[in-house]
């Protein structure tokens, strides 16, 4: 045990510490970046799915089925394969296929349909009676979406946001296998290729800690904004 810690400390020169700190920064950058951009695409898509579904505000089987199909296709491709498949596309957008910024591209493509589904499920939870009441008051569909649905579903939407962030944290680490940067990249390069188990353990522990922080912050915040239970 003591040898193990000694082992760690021998590696804790400033170079390694800086590398790990940069790894944390890159991981957070990728996770939050892809979650935010993912929501910019996934949230509207989720709303469109909800609105056009058979029981939605304006049912449209064609739009619903198209969106549904695209979501299912992308979600059925394993992330690691999606990562490789998208290399040409990533190059087109970012100019290179490695590094944290480049990793955000496949992360977003992977996250958007997932987010759309999570958003659709959250909106489906909103009591149809409340929507009917809003209609009876003379609310337009846009007013119902922005003033009723998104407000009433906010707790559930926020829980979905937390789960998505946690998922993307894991995926961003996975992208380390193809030079994605961040803590996952460090774990692969040092832990796997160079047999530096201690560094790998440190990165794994850091990933766990970051995950816990995200999850607990999310749970705390969604409780705070919820007015349904007291």
């Amino acid at each position: 045990m003591l040898d193990f810690f000694k082992g760690i400390f021998t590696f804790w020169d400033s170079k390694v510490i800086i590398m790990i700190l940069e790894g944390i920064r890159d991981t957070l950058y990728m996770t939050l970046g892809s979650t935010i951009v993912g929501y910019l695409l996934g949230l509207p898509l989720g709303i469109v799915l909800y609105v056009t579904s058979a029981k939605g505000l304006r049912p449209n089987p064609f739009i619903y089925r198209t969106g549904d199909f695209i979501c299912n296709i992308i979600r059925s491709i394993p992330f690691l394969i999606l990562l490789i498949l998208l290399i040409p596309f990533t190059r087109l957008i970012v100019g290179k296929s490695y590094g944290s910024t480049a990793t955000i591209v496949p992360l977003v493509i992977c996250a958007a349909p997932y987010i759309a589904r999570v958003v659709e499920a959250s909106l489906n939870e909103v009591d149809t009676g409340v929507i009917e009441a809003a209609k009876a008051m003379g609310a337009s569909n846009l007013q119902i979406i922005f003033k009723v649905l998104l407000v009433e579903a906010k707790t559930s939407l926020f829980t979905g946001f937390t789960i998505t962030t946690g998922l993307l944290l894991g995926y961003s680490a996975m992208s380390g296998t193809v030079g994605g940067g961040g803590l996952g990249d460090i774990a692969v390069r040092y832990g796997y290729y160079r047999w530096k188990t201690d560094i790998m353990i440190v990165t794994v522990v850091l990933l766990i800690v970051i995950f816990q922080i995200i999850q607990n912050l999310g749970t705390y915040a969604s409780k705070r904004i919820d007015h349904r239970k007291h």
Partner: peptide, 28 residues
């Protein structure tokens, strides 16, 4: 929609906005 503002409606399950307080519900 404008005509509906002349016709109020109440329901068996009240259908209040759960995330808004009483005053904001009435203002809605």
């Amino acid at each position: 929609r404008i005509k509906r503002r002349e016709i109020g409606m109440i329901f068996q399950n009240f259908n209040l906005l759960e995330q808004k307080n009483v005053l904001d519900n009435i203002c809605f």
